[in-house]
Structure formats: C-alpha cells, structure tokens
Design a protein around this nucleic acid. Sequence first.
RNA 1: GGCGACGUAGCCAAGUGGUUAAGGCGGCGGUCUGCAAAACCGCUAUUCACCGGUUCGAAUCCGGUCGUCGCCUCCA
Length: 507
Amino acid sequence: MKVFNTLSGQKEDFLPHGDEVRMYVCGVTPYSDAHLGHAMSYIYFDAIQRYLQFHGYRVKYVQNITDIDDKIIDRAARLGVPARELAEQYINGYFDDMDALNIRRADIYPRATEEIPEMLKIIQSLVTKGYAYPAQGSIYFRVKNVPDYGKLSHRNLDSMTARVRIEPGDEKENPMDFVLWKATKPNEPSWDSPWGPGRPGWHIECSAMSVKYLGETIDIHGGGQDLIFPHHENEIAQSESFTGKKPFVKYWLHNGLLQLDEEKMSKSLGNLVTIKETLKKYRADTIRIFILHSHYRTPLTYDEGTLEASGVALRAFSDAKWKLSEPYAEINRSISEAQGTKTDGTTPANKYRNRFISAMDNDFNTPQAIAVLFDLAQDINRAVNLNHADKVIEHRNIFIELAGVLGLVLPEPERESLTLDIKELTEIKGLTIAQIKRENLEYLLEKTTTNHNVENTEGHINYLKELRDALRKDKKFKLADEIRTRLYGVGIVLEDTPKGTVPKRKQ
RNA sequence: GGCGACGUAGCCAAGUGGUUAAGGCGGCGGUCUGCAAAACCGCUAUUCACCGGUUCGAAUCCGGUCGUCGCCUCCA
C-alpha cells in the first residue's frame, strides 16, 4: 500500500508503527455551519479510515474541535451569547452534518477548552528548553531555533521572512514566530497560566491532543492543503521540539481544496455552500460520489451539473444493488433456491475486489475504485438479464461490500409507501375503466401535480399507476401515456417491466 | 517575488515510459417495449495546453512558453 506523503513529496510504502494505525485529522472551528469543503475533507478521510479497516488494520482516529478562538469570540460577542454556547450549538450542527453524510465518527473528539492543562505543560517545557519566550503576557514559539523549520511546506525561513510585513508594536523576536499562548483581553474567556490569564494559540492544541491521545509519533495526520502552512508546519516545530522525537508524524496526507467558481470555498471569503443546503438538494450518496469520483489530492470544483451526473450514477448503483427486490425478487428467488448461492472469495467476481484493492492501495485512488463499482453494476445487470441468479448474488455481495468501504449506503427505494390509501380516491376507486371520465382523470392528475407533499401524493400516484395498468390492458395508450408523462413532470418515473410497473422517484 | 499543484473527448475524471488513453455524465445507433423508461450491445480523444529536447519508444522524463488554482494572514 502506498500513500503520498506531503513531507517527502512522494508516494511511500505505508508502514504504520503497529497493527493499530494512529490517525489524526484536523477538525473544525465551530462558529458557523460547516460547508461542502469540510464535507469533502471528512468524506475523503472517512473513506481512508474505512479502507484501512477493510485492509485489516485497527484504526484509532482522533479529530480535534477548536472551540475557542478569535472568530468564536467575535461572533458570540456580536450575538450576545457566551462563546461556549455558540460553539456548542455549531458542534451539534457539525455532528448532524457528519451523520447525515454517513461519515463515521472519530474515536475521540477532544476540545481545545478541555485540554488546556496539556497545552500549558507543553508550553512550559518549550519555554524551559528555549524554544519559546514570554512577551507581554503571551508566549511565542522561537522559530529560528528549529533548523528544519519549513520542511513540510518546502520553504525556508529566509524566503518567508522576506515577504512578511513587520507590524508596528509587534512583540515578536522574529516575524515568523507564532503565538502559543495569548494574553487575555478584556471581556474574553481566559484560563490561568504561569504567565497570567490567557488562552491557547491555535496550533498548540493539535500537538497536545495528538501526543496525549495517540503518542509522540503517529502514523497519519490529515487535513486540507490550506493547513500545510502555517498550521501543520508549526505543529511539527512544537511537537518535535517538545518530545525530542522525530518524526512527529510519519505520513502527512492533505486533500485538495473545493473550489467555488474560480476561488477556494472558504468561510473567510464567504463564498460557500453549506452542507445543510447541499443536503436539501442532493442525497448523501450523491454528494459522496461527487467527491470520491475525483482523487483526494486534486482540487474539485463545485458544479451542479457534475452533482446531477453523480445523482444519475447513484441511481444506477442503487438499481444494481436492488435488482433482487421487486419486481425481480420472484424470478431471482426461485432461481437462487434452485441453484444455491454460495460465495467463497475465489469466485470470478473476486477479480473486482482485487481491482478495487489495487486502486485503493495506490494512494487511495477512489476514482478508479468507483470505476470498479460501475463495472460490477454492469455485470449484475447482465446477469439479471440472463437470469443467472448465482452470478447476480455473487457480484451483488461484492458490490455491496465495496460500496460500503467507500461509505455509500444505497438504501432501498421506498416502494411500500406507495400503497397509502387516500380518502378522496375511495369514491373514484369503485369505478370501472369504462366509466372513467376525463374529469376524474384530470382531478387525479391535478391532485398529484399540485400537491408536492410526499405523504399525500403517494396514494394518488399509486392509484394513477393502477388506473394506467387498466388502461393499457384496454389498449387505451394515449391516456395511459399521458398519465406517465404528467407524473414524470412531477418527478415520478413509471417503468414498465415484464413483471409490472415500478414507480420511482427521479434522482 | 518564493513555494506547491494543475492544464487529458461536449462536460466530469483516472492514467505518469511500451499491447487498442480507465470509468461516469451527455449524445448517436441497435436489442427489448404498444410507445417509453430502465437494462444490455455498439459508436462517441490516432490523441493528452503549446513549442523544443532526451529515448528504439512519452500524455507520462527534461527545458521553455501560455493559462488556471492553492499557500506564503484565519481557513478542511
């Protein structure tokens, strides 16, 4: 298995320290709703975590929550609520989003405000060792004491310093020094420290949490490419100076950033689409296919056309997975009972699993992994067409397994609910086809097309379907087709199969 | 200015030295169907931004040009 390591700039063999992979991914600062860029990053790392487990590793996954920082304080002050309360609200929203996207929870979500003692311990040690110095109640990290500072972002102090503007009144020794502990300002949350009241700088929490929960050297540290500098660079400097052990992280994995139009999607630029908004228009699986169909290190552009295409792809996956359900169930059940259905890992279908593994072993190539799913889906459909039940079941099992590794749910379409009975229909239901008057049909179509409340339209749809079946039997195709067309107009597709008509929602 | 990445069909997107350049969306033709839809079958890049070079051989390596993006300030 190979992974691309930002530190070396190359693909390297993945050799974790033990049979448990220790993985840390930078989490969010909860002061507003998470956007699709966050979803992208966490979906990638979710797929990585799932794949590592599929591969046979145990994984210990830690993700921090920066629940105290300038933006939280500003926003809370503007809204007149305590910072803690604001953070709590958006942390809950964040977890709702992650759950809705079927992103597995990390094992531990440490919060900055609950890890202050750990951070102070590290800061104290850094001061003692000369890697940090106090200035006006704050503590700064002394970057020039770290000879290999810049190794992750592949730059050196001189080139960085040349570009930095020196701000007047800056108490730093060197403009590249960064704050470990911020002296408190009036009306801000603060914690006691040996240097007076204050709050932690941003970078220190990750060092503290990583060391505390995963140890002094971990296997994977992930995040967006925008975190490489300064955040991760500074984490390395702090952590390695504190522990005296290198490397702090064996493999640095960074995902490319989501673009909106010509720019990076970001909170500070304000050009974003939140996860909640996106989930109103697209299913979680659709979003996942949209994201995973591009490699994690490549930037991806938010595009509704591409999302729509992902939705179409999802429909194909879903249909392939549920071929054994109505109306195919009966056919396939009889065949499978007659022929038996064992799958033992040496079947021809296993070549798909091997292709999937080769793809994912090569720096988590999810686009290729998804291509394998398409090929599998095609094989399932071919087997269904030929009534080869053994083959259907064998391929379907692998399909479901591999789709699951990518975190795709592919839930069964809800068809039972189409049998709801609606009061207004009962009086019409007694009529025979010969008695159906144009007005009755118009009435039903009107009911269906104007009422977009799903609960109340199911019964209408189902009745229209029955009506249409009867019309088709009577060869009244013009009217039957009109029903189909009108339903299509409100997002209902009627598919006629040899075993009957299946109503489906357009994706 | 420094560092990093990218430019592959109408669109999205793999491939990074060697048989016919994955896969998806869209489009076209066919099978099936009363007609559709879905599914299946076939077609849809002699060519990988452009110009040079290395090589028996390059989309893949090297140099240059043009264009795009990210980081260098908080940011997944």
